[in-house]
């Protein structure tokens, strides 16, 4: 029921994101096909794959934050919480139903981008898709879950989706700066979601073949545990919230 209502509320955004996802999935090989005919198929594939991975990560991050700003936090902003929270269901049900409805949408976006984009590239470059290659999407996916969860939590703390989105954006901008500052001045490496990526983007641009490098395991595991912790905290916060 609440799952349906959340889907009903975000379905227009989902269709827009889906259209963008399909466009981005097709664009890498379309653009590169005309611009880089002189490249060998392997190099062409590596570059196109890199573009696909980054485009999907970027789109999913925006989608994650956008979907995170919906759900139960909007019930407070729109003053419908009194209606919803007098339904005979627990806070846990509402938090996780909203979370699941949105998570399913950007999983669908990921799946669409990866399947369409990777299949097209594989077909165009005659390169066989391997599990190792597909693993390159995992950091982006976990990052999306993180941003989604963080926005979801912040939106609930603010009891307002838009404010949650703005706060989340602030964290996305400020946190890497803090990490860099701490690293620069005190030589301390703060754990950051960026650790999930095997190589830096600048390196990857110079050496596209690194695109298939395996993402490091422990940052992946760590941050994939942090991602569901956000809605869990949101649930605890809501349990103690009064109208």
């Amino acid at each position: 029921m609440y799952f349906w209502k959340c889907w009903r509320g975000t379905r227009v955004s989902f269709y827009v994101f889906l259209a963008i996802a399909l466009t981005l999935a097709v664009l890498p090989w379309k653009i590169m096909d005309s611009a880089m005919r002189d490249l060998g198929p392997q190099q062409f594939f590596a570059l196109a794959w890199m573009i696909l991975v980054f485009a999907s990560s970027g789109l999913l991050a925006i989608a994650g934050m956008s979907f995170g700003a919906t759900g139960i936090s909007e019930e407070f902003a729109h003053k419908t919480a009194g209606f919803l929270l007098t339904k005979p269901r627990s806070i846990r049900y509402f938090v996780w139903a909203g979370w699941a409805a949105n998570a399913l949408q950007f999983l669908t976006l990921t799946g669409t981008m990866v399947l369409v984009g990777a299949s097209l590239l594989s077909w165009a470059c005659h390169v066989q898709l391997t599990g190792r290659l597909l693993l390159t999407f995992v950091p982006g996916l976990i990052m999306t879950f993180l941003l989604f969860g963080m926005t979801y939590l912040l939106a609930i703390l603010h009891k307002n989706g838009r404010n949650g989105f703005i706060s989340s954006l602030g964290v996305v901008i400020v946190f890497p700066m803090i990490c860099l500052a701490v690293q620069y001045f005190w030589h301390i490496h703060l754990p950051s979601p960026g650790d999930m990526y095997p190589v830096e983007m600048s390196q990857m641009v110079r050496h596209p073949e690194l695109v298939a490098a395996l993402p490091p395991l422990w940052p992946l595991v760590g941050w994939s545990l942090v991602a569901p912790a956000c809605p869990l905290v949101a649930e605890l916060v809501l349990e103690h919230t009064e109208l």
């Binding site: 029921m1 729109h78 007098t86 339904k87």
Partner: peptide, 29 residues
Amino acid sequence: LQRTAFVSEKKTLYPSLTPTELVRFSRGF
């Protein structure tokens, strides 16, 4: 809550839903 119906002082509901959809939403509870 299973045995109680409530009409709030603030009569706001989901703006984009029709009464038919609100019925569909509420029915399952």
